[in-house]
Design a protein around this nucleic acid. Structure first.
Lengths: 208, 208
DNA sequence: CCTTGGTGATACCGCTCGGTATCGTGTGGA
DNA sequence: TCCACACGATACCGAGCGGTATCACCAAGG
């Protein structure tokens, strides 16, 4: 067993495994998975191919591990948004939408890592596919839960619509076909929440 | 100049250029662009690499030509839908949505060629990127026009929402996070059209 | 002290890639 | 009849790929 917090030799450097994952993150996101060779990752991480293969069985496993981290980041953001509006599912839903909307400018250059990766990995048995599908399913279930808590009629449909819109906004931002996608995304999600709100409900209050 | 309709040697075969494009279509769609080598396309087209490079300058140009054809197919389908409901923009909008919804099962295995290709081609100067971006912009403008003809309040916003949803439904179908995406997509688009319908308008009639 | 194990560096493997060169062949138009 | 030309087949090129082997190094732990 290695000590839990290793101290790097002399420079203030992260341990190799973290540097590799950071470098992979940057390169996979900006260039795509298949365009990036293991050697390029090693160079950017200031290490060698051998070091990479000491920490990850194959390149495919490294890809999967990267996506696991990205998925965990999204879940953490989801958690944070929920914690900011305790007991207010409507604000939680809009908060999630806001989180995605705010991320759109950064995404505009290369888009959503899950959407892009699934396009690059047609093989359904690829380890990264499992990560993506599990993540998407968790996110959807979580959104259904929020919609149900918000008392929306037909929470599954509402969650599906919101999911469509969140994904579509990222795609449309990436291909540049629509302007002000963030703002439009927020209006769209508000429209969906409105549409499925139980009759007589007033925006902004879930329990009187 | 070659004669406009060449007769193949003896078998009822398409001319090489068409066979190449057909083979490329199948392989790019099912495997992705970068996973498919020029040799594989030649094999499937029952020709040789040399023949491919006689008809297309580079592989990138072949990719662009393929996407030009796909874009033309989408535009033709759009035309057909419009022609089926002349003077009824609301039905035309729903017809376009229906066209996409009906295509989802076929798409479910590998998704939308434009979304996938843009994910595989981070280089913004790639010839295929131009094709994709022009196509998406044309589609969006056309949708805005339909929304305006339908008298929807804020046609740009309505068209943006519909675009989000059409793209998102394809992505969600591909990653399998949502069930019955076709049906849900139709309901969503109906909801958007409803939401932006001018006050007092009755569904199904645009001019009395 | 000396051993152990993660590290860096380099060279290498077989394979596939996009793209080119070369040569033979069959066919249609003049 | 003969020429031009698209086509098919094959071999080849340099480069990059994922992945492995080998060796020296250096810090920590007994």
């Amino acid at each position: 067993m290695t000590s839990p917090a290793r101290r790097p030799s002399r420079v203030a450097k992260l341990p190799p495994r973290e540097r590799i994952l950071d470098a992979a993150e940057e390169l996979f996101q900006s260039e795509g998975i298949r365009r990036v060779g293991v050697q390029a990752i090693a160079d950017k991480a200031e290490t060698t191919k051998m070091a990479i293969y000491r920490h990850f069985e194959t390149k495919d496993e490294l890809v999967a591990e990267w996506l696991r981290i990205v998925a965990a980041d999204y879940r953490a953001a989801f958690d944070r948004v929920e914690a900011e509006h305790p007991g207010r599912p409507r604000e939680q839903i809009l908060g999630v939408a806001r989180f995605i909307a705010d991320g759109l400018p950064a995404v505009s250059y290369r888009g959503c890592p899950f959407i892009n990766s699934i396009a690059e990995l047609p093989d359904r048995s690829h380890p990264a596919r499992l990560v993506i599908e599990q993540h998407k399913e968790r996110q959807t279930r979580r959104l259904v839960g929020l919609c149900a808590q918000a008392g929306l009629t037909d929470p599954e449909q509402a969650a599906a619509e919101i999911t469509f819109v969140l994904e579509g906004a990222q795609v449309s931002t990436q291909n540049g076909s629509i302007d002000r996608t963030g703002e439009r995304l927020m209006r769209t999600v508000e429209g969906i929440v409105d549409r499925y709100r139980p009759a007589g409900d007033v925006p902004g209050s879930t329990t009187p």
